[in-house]
Nucleic acid binder design. Sequence first.
DNA 1: TCATTAACACGGG
DNA 2: CCCGTGTTAATGA
Length: 210
Amino acid sequence: MRDMLHSAYGHILNPALLDAIAREGRFMNVPKGQMIMDVGDPIPGLPLLMEGAIKILRVDAQDDEMLLYFLEAGDSCAMTLGSFYGEKKSEIRAVAEQDCAFVIVPLEKVYDWTGEHRDFRRFVFESFNTRLREMVEALDSLAFLDLTGRLGKYLRDRVMVNGSTTLNTTHAEIAGDLHTSRVVVSRVLKQLETEGTIALHRNRIEVLDF
DNA sequence: TCATTAACACGGG
DNA sequence: CCCGTGTTAATGA
């Protein structure tokens, strides 16, 4: 566990801090596909992802989802902190995109360390900044791209976070992530296939050109 | 025009 | 058989 922490976060957090995180944090392993946190769940602390990838989704009143962004190894999610004084309930849903290993730093320690350690403070602010950038990117693609464009970006993102051009997924899952209907996803995917960008199989999409 | 909903057939596991 | 996929028709924004 300590090795995983060091390899994922050694470039930004000093060894003493990493040891403190290993001491105070709660380690968790979550298998692919499992929900890690839902809307309304209390936020236990700051998650530091060491292995795997996590899908972050927004959820509406009908329980329909919409993908915001992915977390990868080395990513944290300071957004979960919200206000230091206000609400500590999750605004989002998190689902394991792959088998995940992460450590959760308790909120009190986050408050202590952001005051005491320059490294940690910088880390939290950078995480905030990165997440905000991804949020704006998600907003951009919603506002400025048509479905073909959004689907292209979505496929590229998934290829990146999974480290493979073969995606084990269904049209229905994609439709859910993009918050659109399965019919349109099937049609646009078919169009991308005839263009030679991807190859379609049952439960599997191969991204050939991206 | 383009997305959505409903409906249906096909076929693989 | 069940589920994922590919398509069509009707309807709506």
